[in-house]
């Protein structure tokens, strides 16, 4: 699925990485636990999370995970956007709950890692 379609589906604001929206993404992983996000080995899913801090960006940087969707109306701070830009990430902000966002993504055909 194209990132632009994902943004539309989730009614999300793209706050960083607009130039990458034509890219395709087929797998996703949702968690609010940073160590959980670091157990994915050589899988590189889109991350759906309600944890919206500098650590979220850092953790994704460490894991080479560069597409992040914040749910539950979380907003990225300017510092977060800056670090995300340095790492060529795509950041989206979505007002839906984690359950609704994941449900919509699942229905649209995004695949889990396990």
């Amino acid at each position: 699925m194209k990132l632009t379609e994902i943004a539309e589906l989730l009614n999300a604001r793209v706050v960083c990485g607009q130039e990458r929206l034509e890219e395709e993404q087929d797998i996703a992983f949702a968690s609010d636990l940073m160590s959980d996000i670091l157990t994915l080995g050589d899988n590189f899913p889109m991350i759906v999370t309600g944890l919206c801090t500098m650590q979220t960006i850092r953790t994704c940087e460490m894991g080479n995970l560069d597409i992040i969707v914040f749910v539950r109306k979380k907003k990225a701070t300017p510092e977060m956007v800056e670090l995300a830009e340095e790492n060529d990430m795509v950041l989206m902000e979505c007002d839906f709950s984690m359950f609704k966002a994941c449900g919509l993504l699942w229905e649209a055909g995004l695949k889990p890692i396990y």
């Binding site: 609010d32 636990l33 940073m34 160590s35 959980d36 670091l38 157990t39 801090t53 979220t56 953790t59």
Partner: peptide, 15 residues
């Protein structure tokens, strides 16, 4: 609150 504390860090290091 910062998303840590799952008790997964050290086992993850080991892996």
């Amino acid at each position: 609150d910062m998303g840590f504390g799952a008790g997964m860090g050290l086992p993850n290091i080991k892996k």
